[in-house]
Simulated scan of single mutants.
Amino acid sequence: MSETKLTSIIIPTHNGLPLLVSCIESIRRHTEVPYEIIVVDNGSTDGTQEYCIQEGLTFIALPTNEGFPAACNRGLAIASGDQLLLLNNDVNVTPQWLSNMLLALYSAEDVGIVGPVTNYASGRQQVDVVWETQEEFMQIACRHNRSNPAKWLEAQRIVGLCFLFKRKLWEIVGQFDERFSPGHYEDDDYCYRARQHGFRLIISGDTLVYHAGSASFASANPGGWNDLIESNRQKFIDKWGIDPWIYL
């Protein structure tokens, strides 16, 4: 893979300015390959727009909260990268994160989607990490993130918290399904569709990132978190006739 390839990093956000600032700072600090950042704001009222303008970020301002899948689609529509990456605003990336994942993505023609391991995720991407401070977590990640294809693991699903895929996959599979708004299971749905088109999915076990853990969703849906998850799980079952939990 040529290192001149550009990665478009799309970050949906909703009233999560402190998280977004930390996420952006981590990208700028730890990304050594070409990238662009596109922030898609779901109707925030916390100064997100002013911050993005001040920082010179590519910015899409939606008037209301249209949900995570819709925000992803808006960002992807203007992305110019050879590869595309959806990133939750509550993720802090780490040294070598993107270069390691790109090696996995371009390791074979039929690899379509790659994701890292992390301290907080559903399924096989969660790993045990013991730390007390963010600085300590970063030190652990720095030691962990040594490129090692032996740690790559083929998977049935990649969690959308850090979701890297080839542009050709986007052109074939199409947009994220907005019936899953405000969010949950749109990533399972996309992975299922990608696999139907013959793409393989890889967990980049040599890439550890920090995930605060669905912080924006939890704040936006304090009373109906479990109901939302179960409702969207049922939408997946109704669409495909299978339970996405079989992939966990």
Rank of each mutant, 00 (worst) to 15 (best):
E186F: 03
S231M: 03
L201P: 05
R193G: 00
G224Q: 13
L161F: 10
Y192A: 03
E186D: 11
V159N: 14
Q175E: 13
L164Q: 12
Y185L: 01
D227W: 02
G183W: 10
G183K: 07
D206V: 11
F176W: 07
S231W: 01
L164S: 11
L169F: 01
Y185N: 01
R179V: 13
F165T: 05
G198E: 03
A212M: 10
Y190W: 07
D187N: 00
L164D: 11
L169A: 11
T207F: 01
A218G: 07
L208W: 12
Q156L: 13
E171A: 04
D177Q: 08
V159Y: 05
A218D: 08
G198K: 01
F163N: 03
V209S: 02
T207Q: 06
W170H: 13
F176M: 07
L228E: 12
G224T: 12
Q156T: 07
R233C: 06
S214R: 12
W225H: 15
F165G: 12
G224Y: 03
F217R: 11
R157T: 09
F176I: 07
L153P: 00
L228M: 15
V159F: 07
R200V: 08
W170S: 14
D177L: 06
S214L: 12
E154G: 07
Y192C: 05
E178C: 11
C191A: 12
R179H: 10
N232A: 02
I203T: 13
Y210T: 06
I203A: 14
F176E: 06
A220I: 06
F180A: 05
N232T: 07
S231K: 12
K166Q: 10
D189P: 00
L208P: 15
W170L: 15
L164N: 09
V209F: 00
V159I: 13
D206H: 11
S231T: 04
Y192D: 09
R157L: 08
D189V: 00
Q175S: 10
D188S: 00
Q234W: 04
E154N: 09
Y210N: 14
G224N: 15
A218E: 13
A220Y: 05
F199A: 02
L228I: 14
G183Y: 04
Q234M: 14
R233K: 14
W225D: 14
